[in-house]
Simulated assay, not measured.
Amino acid sequence: MNRIIALVIVVVAVLFAGASTLLVVDQRHVAVVYSRGGSNPVVVGTGLHVKLPAPLQSAMIVDTRVRTLAPSDADHCVTSDKSELLVTPALKYRVTDPLKLFNETEGDQQSANDRLAAALRSALGEAFGKRSLADALAHQGAIAREAQAAMAGTAGTLGVELVDLQFLRVDFPHAAADAVYKRMTAAEEKAASDARAQTSAEVAEIKADAERQRDAVLADAYAAAQSIKGGGDAKAAAIAADAFGRDPNFYQFYQSLQAYRSVFKAGDVIVVDPDSEFFRFMRSPDGNAASTNPAASASRKH
């Protein structure tokens, strides 16, 4: 019975020792195999590898995929105008030099994450501290790129490549949110008021310019009309003068007709001597014939 128990113990010990000498690495990882005390580290890739059993040799498995570092708590960043912001970043990175990572962290990968997180906080604080609140909110992408470039040196010493840095959220602290929103609202209202005032001034200027152009067009048109009218009157006067010059009696006849037109209007009653000189062209075409009824009075209604 004792022999059976001893045999089982030996078999288990052999299996355990054999299992500790085998190292399986899949395609998502690499392994750093190192001797006691972290000496003689060697990087091995995908496959099945044999090593000495622990504690003679140990292995650190390194994930070479793109990973995300997202702090659980938002970072407090202060802008150049002393406004506080709560920034929640997300840093994407991957390990490109596992051996450098092992040497810098002595096999403790959590310390690498802590160093990256500290470098990220420092880079964000410096990037936001260079900008005003409005500038920081308007250029978050530029701030992220600037912070990523600033922490590239720290990441390089860890054998890490930074892939991307984005902000999951940028917000105000609860205590300052109302005051900031009111200040931003006042600034936007002032900008809107200035824009309306400028627009009103431009509209007034456009209207004044249009009125000046209208007055100029009307003045030019009136001047042209008067010139045309004056030319027409001059031609009419010349034609009339030529006609009257050919026959002076025609001028007298024409003027009498104009007088009749002005005097005899519908509804007017005129009592006048029919032998008056005023009616001489009504008695005779040449205005020289004697009256046919010299003693009578005439009453005309038109």
Rank of each mutant, 00 (worst) to 15 (best):
T79H: 03
L99P: 11
Q140V: 08
R65C: 01
K100I: 02
K100F: 00
S83N: 12
V78K: 05
Q109E: 11
F102N: 07
A117T: 09
S122H: 10
I61W: 06
S122T: 12
G129C: 09
Q57T: 08
I61M: 15
R131V: 10
P89R: 03
H139T: 13
N113S: 10
Q57H: 08
V66A: 08
V42E: 15
D63N: 11
S80I: 14
Q110R: 10
L124P: 04
G125E: 04
D73K: 10
A134Y: 07
L133P: 00
T64F: 04
L52W: 13
T68H: 10
D73I: 03
Q57F: 09
D81R: 07
V62F: 03
E146S: 15
R121W: 00
Y93M: 02
L99E: 15
A90R: 12
S122R: 08
G45L: 10
A144T: 07
G129F: 07
D81Y: 07
A134P: 00
L120C: 01
L116K: 01
V62N: 04
T88R: 13
T46W: 10
L91K: 00
V50Q: 14
V87E: 06
H76V: 15
H76F: 09
T68N: 08
N113V: 04
Y93L: 03
K82E: 13
F102S: 09
G129K: 06
L101K: 04
K100S: 12
A90V: 06
A90L: 09
Q110C: 00
G45Q: 12
D63I: 01
F128S: 03
V43R: 08
E126A: 13
S80R: 14
G125N: 09
S80F: 11
A142P: 05
E84K: 09
Q110T: 11
R115H: 03
Q109C: 01
E84Y: 02
A138Q: 13
L116Y: 01
A70L: 01
T46D: 12
E104Q: 14
V42S: 14
H76P: 00
T64C: 09
T79C: 07
R145H: 11
